[in-house]
Design a protein around this nucleic acid. Structure first.
Lengths: 223, 223
DNA sequence: CTTGACACAGAACGTATGTTCGTGTATTAT
DNA sequence: ATAATACACGAACATACGTTCTGTGTCAAG
């Protein structure tokens, strides 16, 4: 005897889902009865029946500990990371890095907000920091004065990573693609018309972070 | 008889406020009794007494229509714009522009999420669109293959704006700083080592948008 | 000492809330 | 015809919930 198959995501599921998302965005989650009114369901047990299915589909979460505890599982309004801007990055300056002891609380002046969806998967906000480019010295990395560079803390890199590197022997900071060669490191500019830097393996080279993203804001004239 | 002055924002107000914000971020607003437990207040009427003051201070909002309807007045977690990526931008392609009739509903595949704080003030989401750079032809704009360019719809520009321009006479799209000169337009590359393009005022030139932001995501190798 | 406001407390109350139970119809494959 | 499941319903129930009411203690100023 074959079981009657469920219809999956029906219009009614969708209507309930939309309502839960809308109320979630408003900050006031709905009750079972309010969901029923929205979806033209007259019985609270039918609403519970649908909420159970939406839970099983992984679309909503409920918490039986308190009332009105129903929310969408995935939202895009909470996926906003605030990444601290630790300082400038320029050719002649050492690179600011995060202090692991410090807690960077949301600071309007020295931070940048980035949607989680723009960041690599599994990236944790606490591993990221930002630096603001000062001057034209990063042009070989196709990065302009004023750009914001978002990095992941790192002291090592793999071939092909773009890294922020401090070269103490040259008093120089640079952003380049990193490659290990047999006897040396090659730091390759993003601009293909420019020459790489070669660093002998006996020369000091301090990787401070891997670049995961660059943000460039352009000033537009007022309308 | 002088009125005894109220103490303003006390530790207890702050504790209640922090709890309301935390539960708001979790998507499950608290009840009066839960707030009381958090703030060591044994009476629901005292909680109501404090909530009334927080409301008067403009810090929270309540809705008597339903239970658990208390939320912070100001939050920054809703400031996330989803901007549609309309297609590619490359030198030899015409520029995709928004269809004013179409409604771009949140589409996971063809959109980019941007924090509102990164966008110019007064910018409305509906005026923005994004294009993905295809190929190396925008290098003179310091923009790489794969970068996402966010634009504001525009058919005119002011001096100094970076614009997306389609030149029908040359079958060419370009991103450059725009200047009006006496007899011609000058399209100035972002890279100062490169030469500008001059377009006579009798030549067709179609401005499609002003660049407000560029996002560059870098692939990092898996750890 | 008196007065008025602030801050706090508990009880009572009516309404809101979600779960559980029993019931019914429709669909599907055997 | 049968059995299993989907889909739908209303009622009952215990608990959750916010407001209102009444009361008390403290404090500052006259």
């Amino acid at each position: 005897m074959m079981v009657r198959t469920r219809k999956g995501m029906t219009d009614r599921h969708q209507k309930i889902m939309d309502f839960i998302i809308r109320r979630y965005d408003e900050g006031f989650p709905p009750s079972i009865r309010e969901i029923g009114e929205e979806a033209d369901i007259s019985s609270t047990s039918v609403v519970t029946y649908y909420l159970k299915q939406l839970t099983e589909m992984g679309l909503i979460e409920r918490d039986p500990k308190f009332s009105r505890a129903v929310r969408p599982t995935h939202t895009n309004s909470k996926d906003l990371f605030r990444i601290p801007i630790l300082g400038p990055i320029a050719a002649g300056l050492p690179i600011p890095v995060p202090d692991p002891q410090a807690a960077y609380i949301g600071d309007e002046i020295n931070g940048v907000e980035v949607a989680r969806s723009l960041l690599p998967e599994r990236e944790k906000a606490r591993e990221l920091f930002a630096l603001k480019v000062q001057g034209d010295s990063m042009i070989d990395a196709m990065i302009n004065d004023g750009d914001i560079v978002i990095l992941k803390s790192a002291i090592e890199a793999r071939n092909g990573d773009m890294v922020a590197v401090w070269l103490p022997g040259r008093d120089e900071t640079t952003l380049k693609y990193f490659f290990k060669e047999k006897e040396r490191y090659r730091l390759q500019p993003a601009n293909p018309t420019m020459q790489p830097i070669f660093i002998g393996k006996d020369e000091p080279l301090e990787i401070k972070g891997k670049v995961v993203m660059v943000i460039r804001k352009l000033e537009t004239t007022a309308a």
